[in-house]
Computed example of a mutant assay.
Amino acid sequence: MRRGAVGAATTRPGPTPLPRPRRVELGGAGPEDVVFDGAGRVVTGVADGRVLRIVLPTGDRPAGIEQVGHTRGRPLGLEVLPDGRLLVCDAERGLLRLDPDGEQRPEVLADSVAGAPLRFCSNAVAAADGTVYFTVSSRRHGLDDWLCDILEHEPTGLLVRLTPGAEPQVLLDGLQFANGVALAPDESYVMVAETGAWRLTRLWLSGPDAGRHDILADALPGFPDNVSRSPAGGFWVALAGPRTPPLAWLHRAAPGVRRAVAGAARHLPTPPASGARVIEVDERGRVVRELRGAGRRFRMTTSVGEHGGRLVMGSLMEHAIAWCDLPAPA
């Protein structure tokens, strides 16, 4: 892996308060990803398999929520296609395509990769030519055991390309819990969040470095989860939790120690989740702002998107999405 230019940690701006999030209750758990469709509506999926479309509240008008599909699995990452259809990464069924204004039964685009069943499909992005790039977080663990994968720190995540009419092709292997994925504004590279390594990895798709990969941003202040394009030209990155010294120590320990801790973690209560936290990075990987929430109003932020001066956030553990007006940069 070739390392690219990464902004030094000392040059990063300090965190600023995130405005108090306003919740939109969904009647379902774990809206892990949030995306905007062409009309500015929020689309998300919940643990019971439903895919929901949400009109955010304005003035005296309450939020509007409608079901636009059901995967009969566990939807995670979403991508809105130019024709309005949705790509849905389902942790149980693979990569799906769904028409939110038509037949609610999804089409399976890929359910295996390199001869192995596709498990823990996490997030996807589509290029202008119809090529889809998607991530597989782990080949060892499913969604229910995501924490074990983080603790074991075994690099089994994948970045996969699906070209129309072709079989899925693994582009990058050995990723540390591959998660959110996004394309550069000019589609010169695809970026993937390696949650277990606190970094954003970049694979060049065109130009003199085509086919090579490097680090877009390293030593992030928390676990990067889903990512989205920022109107400013960079990326919004949700931080699902903060970096902690004990976990950094564990990642340096012997594999047997990591596996033992992961095994014990299965029998312990899930650690309390941190408050909402997101960062914005520019196209060169420099953190240009960090917004941090206080208290337990909205926890474990796993996705974030910006539209019309608002930030919208999703969470693997909450029963709601949250939104707030985006504060002006410091």
Rank of each mutant, 00 (worst) to 15 (best):
P185T: 06
L147V: 11
T58Y: 13
L159G: 01
G94I: 01
E32N: 07
E167W: 06
I54W: 00
T201Q: 12
Q104D: 14
T11V: 13
P271W: 05
E79Q: 15
R97E: 13
P242S: 15
R50C: 02
A8Q: 11
V136K: 02
H251W: 13
V51Q: 08
L291W: 08
T195P: 02
A114M: 07
V261F: 03
G102K: 13
R289P: 03
A238G: 09
G38S: 11
G69S: 05
G7L: 00
R199K: 12
R140L: 15
L159S: 00
D111S: 13
P231M: 10
C121F: 04
T10D: 14
P13A: 09
Q67I: 07
A238N: 08
L87A: 02
T58V: 13
V35M: 08
G69N: 05
L183G: 11
G40D: 07
P272S: 09
A238T: 01
L81F: 12
P15K: 07
R41D: 12
P224T: 07
P164H: 05
A126R: 15
W236Y: 08
R61I: 09
P224R: 04
L175R: 01
H319Y: 04
S137A: 15
V34C: 06
G309D: 07
A91W: 10
M300R: 15
V68H: 03
A178K: 02
A320Y: 01
E107F: 11
G293E: 00
D186L: 06
A210C: 11
D60A: 15
L203S: 07
D145P: 00
P21L: 08
